[in-house]
């Protein structure tokens, strides 16, 4: 196991955002977390990344974790290259050249301010910035949101490649359940702060409830 949470509960004031959630990602595994808006997906991400403190439960992360946050959250006035450099803030070496090898589309954007890029370009930079940390687990919050299908395919291909070539583990948080179940071998379904289903993606995709709620198919 590379990262996991167990019996995690997070509260905002009186509201319970996560209620006894358990989830894990194994070494080199691609795992999807799907569910509707407000289910607590982003809360789970923030807790896992140490950005907020849970009310109870345990969080275990082995190795380095990097986050591609929802809405990309690039540093808008800084250049693409500077954004990438800051991705390696925790590391001593901040050489960005290998990222341009992995994501050749970024080469021509290198000196542009990140705030001036299109959504798809920004998501690619956000992915590159996270990869700069040379993580063993990549957490991606809402990768496909607002992006054209062609760009989403491109991003997915990059993820698959890093997974097969480097053994990078991925936790993919997605509203686009079809994409997530296609890309990842295993998945969790989160609803109203609880895990309501989990298992191999193929098995979840064939379950009538998941198919009806998330794949737009008749039960």
């Amino acid at each position: 196991m590379i990262a996991g949470v167990s019996d995690l509960t997070v509260r905002y004031a009186a509201a319970t955002a996560l209620d006894g959630v358990s989830l894990h990602v194994a070494d080199g595994e691609m795992v999807a977390l799907i569910g509707p808006n407000g289910a607590g997906k982003s809360t789970l991400v923030n807790a896992l990344c140490g950005l907020l403190r849970p009310a109870s439960g345990t969080i275990a992360v082995r190795g380095d974790l990097a986050l591609v946050p929802e809405g990309r959250h690039l540093f808008p006035s800084l250049s693409v290259d500077d954004n990438l450099r800051l991705g390696a803030w925790r590391r001593r070496r901040r050489d960005t050249s290998h990222i341009y090898g992995l994501l050749p589309g970024l080469v021509k954007l290198r000196d542009r301010p990140a705030g001036r890029l299109s959504g798809g370009e920004q998501q690619m930079v956000a992915l590159g910035r996270a990869l700069m940390a040379r993580p063993s687990l990549l957490v991606i919050d809402e990768m496909s949101l607002g992006l054209a299908p062609k760009i989403v395919d491109d991003l997915a291909a990059h993820l698959r490649e890093r997974n097969t070539v480097d053994g990078l583990a991925v936790l993919l948080i997605e509203q686009n359940a079809r994409l997530a179940l296609e890309l990842c071998a295993r998945a969790y379904v989160l609803e109203a702060g609880r895990v309501v289903a989990e298992g191999p993606s193929a098995q979840l995709a064939s379950s009538p409830e998941v198919a009806a709620a998330y794949l737009g198919l008749e039960a």
Partner: peptide, 8 residues
Amino acid sequence: YAARAVGI
């Protein structure tokens, strides 16, 4: 938020 996410 993003600064914290990259470890600053």
